[in-house]
Design a protein around this nucleic acid. Structure first.
Lengths: 338, 338
DNA sequence: TTTTTGACCAAAAACGTTTTCGATACTCGA
DNA sequence: TCGAGTATCGAAAACGTTTTTGGTCAAAAA
């Protein structure tokens, strides 16, 4: 596509490039008549200032990057999409450029986070999907750049943590199951390398302990947020511990695998065995009569993360307070009282 | 974050900036010793060439933009996410930059597609979510830029169409319902402003006509791909035409609303009234005993679109042939034979 | 010994802007 | 008529690169 430069516009208008630049950038020292004529010509010629030249001239747009760890072909929970959409809109609302970046364990070895940010000219970054011990997690601490991290507790005054209170959320879910009369509750957790898994595990144990019940380690299994793994784990648990009367799952997708296992074992979900999921995915209310689950708002996560980073870019305080989001226990059929 | 320029590196290494540039860009006329020393210093100083300066110097990365019409907070079908992920990976595999863009009817009025592409320095573009009569649709034809459009038949030799054969897919679905013995089949279609809706409507009519059945316009309703609209439409249809024994829905999400309406009407999904959806969303097999549906691969859509645009950028023929993708009728419980 | 060659490096132009500063011409008051 | 002020514009530097061109020096060829 043919690009027209400021020189072309200047030639066409019979003025210098200085005047064109000033006319289009609302400088005071250009006559109304000239300004009008130049803008008209620029418009007609489809002149769009080159962003690189502009940057050389000292005018740069601010940019926030959303760094996703391992962009998968599909996003069953809708979490990544919601975060992405939220971050995008936060940038749009703030008049900031948005760019999407991805990493994987391999690329984290070859390019440092700092160099990645430098190469993309980032003014701020939002990180999602990091696992404990990912190299980038530690590098984010050394990064001299406004930064928000989703779903990992960083405990760093310079970094904004964005997440719900996962301990509390898991506690509520398990407490609810206890209130339903359940006494043998298994935990199908996400990957042990995910910070949220640790926290949900803590909430699970905390609720049991408060009720004076023992935490039986053999009733907790990591299914890596994977439906099939969750299914197989549940099959095995149900075989080995027929006394289980409830499952708390760290994602709705895993809950589906668990429900299937329960039904295949000839037991009734929501009656013989209760199931609580996590996330409240869009189709949750249509499965197994309605999945009882802990809702979290991924769009808001992304949006708040974007806004927090934006505020830091604007020079507002290093966000000593992190962004806490609210969760909500949504009670449907797979686990319900009385 | 402090940026290090090539000048800083040159000073530190005691050579000219020319030599630094050549050393890092593998020019032959720099001694191995100098090259080694310069790269070592550049690495240590965290020097990353400024992309704007680089662009001024005549080196520009190719960029493909994915233009989404109206990025919503949630993506129940996973279509947008799949396409995005596919396009992203196509770019990554081709060593091309990827940027995400969005439009809405309002912004289409104020900024032309050409200016949008110019301002983002695009070398190619993928369009998704366009409605018939969107201004950008016509502008895409005038655009002098490699371009792929998803799910709209453009009939332009310079533009790559990417989609499944929606007429054929709908025909197969309805033909299957007819094979199941259904004789009164309603169509819950997407928005009439979406090209795929027209095509699925054609396939629906085509299948009925081939079997000698009349196409009753009152049995077709546009529910705009919305679950609630589909629900209400189905409620009304079932009340007014109790003889209906099947629904063909243009999306799984709408199929869910329809199923709910059927059950609330006291009829049994998959027995009294059969339902076929569209898309095969990740949780389809878990709903109503398993949704019968037409599967399409959104990731592949995005990937193929990206690759097609990339090939055009590389100067390969204007892609007279469009990219056709395969669909697959997935038979589960909500509609099944014998 | 002189000339040629090749290896290595630097000066400078170019890219498209913005912005500072100086230049010109005009207006107005004295 | 002249000087000061004002309105309008252009020249030129600057930004960070790449790339062309030319220059220096030592080694090889004559």
């Amino acid at each position: 596509m043919e690009r027209v430069s400021i020189r072309d516009v200047a030639r066409e208008a019979g003025v210098s490039i200085t005047t064109v630049s000033k006319a289009l950038n609302d400088y005071p020292d250009v006559s109304p008549e000239t300004r009008r004529r130049v803008s008209e010509i620029a418009q007609r010629m489809n002149y769009v200032p080159d962003v690189a030249g502009r940057s050389m001239g000292g005018i740069t747009e601010k940019v926030i990057g959303l760094l996703l760890n391992d962009l998968t072909p599909t996003d069953p929970s809708g979490a990544v999409f919601g975060i992405l959409s939220g971050a995008y809109h936060a940038c749009a609302d703030s008049g900031i450029d948005f760019v999407l970046l991805t990493t994987n364990p391999g690329s984290q070895e070859e390019t440092s986070l700092k160099r990645l940010c430098l190469s993309k000219r980032l003014d701020g970054i939002i990180c999602n999907g990091f696992r404990l011990h990912d190299p980038y997690l530690e590098q984010a601490r050394q990064l001299d750049l406004p930064c928000a991290v989703i779903d990992v507790e960083m405990n760093d005054p310079r970094i904004v943590d964005v997440s719900i209170d996962n301990v509390q959320a898991a506690d509520e879910a398990v407490t609810f199951l206890l209130g339903c009369g359940c006494r043998a509750i298994a935990l199908i957790n996400g990957s042990a390398r995910a910070d949220v898994s640790l926290r949900r595990g803590r909430g699970y144990a905390q609720a049991l302990t408060r009720s004076g019940l023992p935490v039986r380690p053999e009733w907790t299994v990591d299914a890596d947020f994977d439906m099939d793994s969750a299914y197989h784990a549940a099959v095995e648990l149900l075989r080995q511990y027929p006394e289980l009367d409830a499952f708390f799952c760290a994602s709705d997708v895993m809950a589906l695998g668990v429900c299937q296992a329960i039904e295949e074992a000839g037991r009734k979900v929501g009656a013989d065995v209760m199931v609580v999921g996590f996330d409240d995915i869009p189709t949750a209310r249509y499965m197994y009569g309605g999945l009882t689950t802990v809702r979290q708002d991924f769009y808001k996560m992304g949006y708040n993360a974007g806004m927090a980073v934006y505020r830091q870019i604007q020079g507002q305080k290093p966000a000593d307070a992190s962004v806490g989001l609210l969760h909500e226990l949504v009670i449907r059929s797979t686990a319900h009282g009385g």
